[in-house]
C-alpha cells in the first residue's frame, strides 16, 4: 500500500520540499485515522443493526451524550491547532529571504516566462540556478495574473500585475525541474511552461562567466558558442553546437529556438490552430490579413511578424503575439526564418 503511493511522489528538490511533505504526511495519517473511525463505525452499525424483517426492531431512546461530544471537540481542536502551528512555522521559513540570495527577475506574460539575471542576461522559459545557494525570484506580470509553480520544490507564488511578488528557494537536487503557470491566464495557460535547471555552483559560475566574456568582446553568441565548452545545452542558445560537433543547419537551430523561445505556446507546426496560426505551410503562401488584404509570406513578412507582430495581423486571430524585438538576436531571427521556411511546403 505504502509502496503503491510512492509512485505518486515527486522528487524533493528544495530545502522546503521535505518539510512540506512531512506535514502533508502527518495530516494524511490524522485524516486517514479519523476517516477510518467514521467509516468503520458506519459500516459496522449498518451491518450490525440492519433491519431484518419488514417491521422495524424496537430501538433505544438515546438523545446524545454531551461528554463524548465535548471530548471529540476538544481532541479535534488540539489536533487542528497543532496542524495550524506546524503549517505556520514552515510557512514563515518559506517566505523568509536568506541574505546573499541570488536574485533573478521573472516576468510572466501570456504565455511565457522571461528571466533576467543581475548581469543582464535574459532567457525565456528556461533558467539556470546553482544548487545549494538561496535564490530569490523577484516576479512581476506584464498582463494578467499568473502563478509560478515548481512542484519539485513544493513552492508556488502568484505573479501579480502592478506589483512585485517574490519566491525564495534553495535547490538541493541538480536536474531539470518543471515550472507551471498555476493561475488561470487565458488561452494557452496550460502551455505556459518553463524549466528550472539546477546545476553545480561551479557550472553555474562558468555559464555566467562565458557569457559575460562574450558580451565584453562583443561576440555574438551564435559564433561564440562554437568556442565555448561549458555551455549547458538548451539555455539561451539551445541550438549552439557543442565543441567538436559539426555545426548544425540554421533550420535545425531555428527548430530548437522555436521551443526555447516559447513559440510553441501559441503556434503548432502540425496544422493545428492554437492561439496563433499553425506555421505549417505558411511560407511562400498567401496569408489573409484582418484588414482584408492579402500578402505572400516571404522572409521579410516572417521577420516583421517577430519584430512588429501588431503591424500585420492574420485574419481570425487576436493581436496578442508579443514582440521579440530586442529579445531575439539577428542570428536567431535568421534561424527561425529558416525553420519556418522549412515548414513551408
Amino acid at each position: 500500500m505504502i509502496q503503491f503511493f510512492k509512485i505518486f511522489e515527486l522528487p524533493r528538490s528544495s530545502t522546503m520540499a521535505g518539510k512540506i511533505d512531512a506535514l502533508y504526511d502527518f495530516v494524511f495519517w490524522v485524516s486517514m485515522i479519523s476517516f477510518l473511525i467514521i467509516v468503520i463505525g458506519m459500516v459496522y452499525f449498518v451491518w450490525r443493526y440492519r433491519r431484518r424483517g419488514v417491521t422495524p426492531e424496537p430501538t433505544p431512546y438515546i438523545t446524545g451524550h454531551t461528554p463524548t461530544e465535548v471530548s471529540v471537540a476538544v481532541v479535534l481542536f488540539i489536533i487542528v491547532m497543532a496542524i495550524f502551528y506546524w503549517g505556520w512555522v514552515d510557512y514563515t521559513e518559506i517566505i523568509t529571504s536568506k541574505p546573499g540570495s541570488l536574485e533573478i527577475n521573472v516576468t510572466g506574460r501570456q504565455w511565457l516566462w522571461e528571466f533576467e539575471y543581475t548581469n543582464g542576461r535574459k532567457t525565456v522559459n528556461e533558467a539556470l540556478v546553482p544548487k545549494g545557494q538561496p535564490v530569490k525570484l523577484i516576479m512581476g506580470s506584464a498582463d494578467v495574473l499568473h502563478s509560478f509553480y515548481v512542484p519539485d520544490f513544493r513552492l508556488k507564488q502568484d505573479v501579480v500585475p502592478g506589483a512585485y511578488t517574490k519566491l525564495d528557494f534553495t535547490a538541493i537536487q541538480t536536474g531539470e525541474h518543471q515550472v507551471f503557470c498555476a493561475e488561470y491566464c487565458g488561452t494557452a495557460h496550460s502551455k505556459m511552461l518553463a524549466k528550472l535547471k539546477v546545476v553545480e555552483p561551479e557550472e553555474y559560475q562558468k555559464w555566467q562567466k562565458t557569457w559575460e566574456v562574450e558580451q565584453s568582446l562583443g561576440v555574438q553568441p551564435a559564433q561564440a558558442a562554437e568556442s565555448s565548452e561549458s555551455r549547458p545545452t538548451g539555455i539561451e542558445n539551445p541550438a549552439a553546437p557543442r565543441h567538436g560537433a559539426a555545426p548544425e543547419l540554421p533550420a535545425e537551430r531555428g527548430k530548437a529556438l522555436f521551443t526555447a523561445k516559447g513559440c510553441t505556446a501559441c503556434h503548432s507546426v502540425t496544422g493545428q490552430i492554437l492561439v496563433g496560426p499553425s506555421l505549417k505551410g505558411v511560407f511562400g503562401h498567401e496569408v489573409d490579413l484582418n484588414d482584408d488584404s492579402r500578402i505572400t509570406a516571404d522572409e521579410n513578412y516572417i521577420r516583421e511578424s517577430l519584430t512588429d507582430p501588431q503591424l500585420k495581423v492574420v485574419k481570425g486571430f487576436q493581436p496578442v503575439m508579443p514582440t521579440y524585438k530586442g529579445t531575439l538576436k539577428d542570428e536567431e531571427i535568421n534561424d527561425l526564418v529558416a525553420y519556418i521556411k522549412s515548414l513551408g511546403n
Binding site: I83, G87, D90, Y91, K156
Partner: peptide, 17 residues
C-alpha cells in the same frame, strides 16, 4: 478532511490551484 491539507499554510503553498 482534505480541507485540512489546504488550510495548513505550508502544504497549501504546494497544493493551491
Amino acid at each position: 478532511l482534505t480541507g485540512l491539507f489546504l488550510a495548513a499554510l505550508s502544504v497549501d503553498v504546494h497544493l493551491h490551484d
